[in-house]
């Protein structure tokens, strides 16, 4: 039960979240996004085992951003009609202005909540496999992304490796931290060049293993769609509907 969000089929989750977001884009009021944001958090509380500390850390930039939207919308707002609800430094803020500002910033939060939900409860490899199995993504692209994705941890090492290679070959490390930072630029191209070579070799390896890129029917790791997906999707829709319904009254 606690795992329900993690167990959801990644493609289904992806689609349902996309639907939620697109729908949210059509509702321009403070309440709909706020309710969705709360609902999403509630969902995660009940059906996931994510690391909340990390979640909070990732949420911070979005909070700042949402605040940015808030005040710029107030300052640069075009529509300044409506009753004045608030006065700061002799600057009048009207009802409409506040509504717009809140709508925009809550929307940012709702989007962030949804996307963090997806990112924190989805295994990337499974997502790509599921895209290939459920959404008919071309295996050529799917496996290429998988291969590329495996390079992520390697890229970090690669960066260290190139530094080490330069050091081994007798390049002196500059004392000055700024010069050192500036010298990093010299490492970036070799790093990309290394990536290009890795890509080429992986492609050779894939071909040598008989990969032709045609659609495949047999998978070793099968990603399924099941009852759990139906239930969870229904919950998402319910939250969304609740958020939308509130504006109808």
């Amino acid at each position: 039960m606690k795992q329900a969000l993690h167990k959801m089929n990644p493609s289904v989750k992806f689609l349902i979240i996309t639907v939620c977001m697109l729908t949210l884009a059509f509702f321009f009021n403070p309440w709909t996004p706020l309710i969705c944001w709360g609902g999403v958090i509630l969902l995660q509380l009940c059906f996931s085992t994510i690391d909340w500390k990390k979640w909070l850390l990732f949420m911070i930039p979005f909070l700042i951003m949402s605040f940015g939207y808030f005040w710029t919308t107030i300052v640069f707002a075009e529509d300044r009609t409506g009753a004045v609800v608030w006065s700061v430094f002799q600057y009048d803020i009207t009802r409409t202005q506040l509504d717009h500002a809140l709508s925009l910033s809550f929307r940012v939060l709702a989007f962030a909540g949804l996307s963090l939900l997806f990112a924190f409860t989805t295994d990337p490899t499974k997502f790509i496999l599921s895209l290939m199995q459920q959404l008919k993504l071309s295996p050529k692209i799917a496996y290429s992304i998988l291969v590329g994705y495996q390079f992520l941890p390697v890229m970090k090492e690669e960066f260290v490796h190139i530094q080490q290679a330069h050091r081994l070959r007798g390049a002196v490390r500059d004392r000055n931290a700024i010069v050192r930072l500036w010298n990093v630029r010299r490492l970036l191209l070799p790093m990309l060049a290394g990536a290009v070579r890795k890509a080429e070799r992986s492609a050779f390896a894939m071909e040598a293993r008989g990969f032709t890129g045609e659609k495949r029917v047999e998978f070793y790791q099968v990603v399924r769609v099941g009852k759990n997906d139906v239930v969870m999707s229904a919950l998402f829709i319910f939250i969304l509907a609740a958020g939308c319904a509130i504006t109808l009254k």
Binding site: S202, A205, T212
Partner: peptide, 28 residues
């Protein structure tokens, strides 16, 4: 291949072998 470092495309040994079998259309 000659270079042991550059002949794999998957992460683990099992995945690499499974990938080969998938390519050969071996029944699951």
């Amino acid at each position: 291949f000659q270079d042991p470092d550059s002949q794999f495309c998957m992460r683990t040994v099992e995945e690499e072998l499974a990938f080969t079998l998938e390519n050969l259309r071996t029944p699951r």
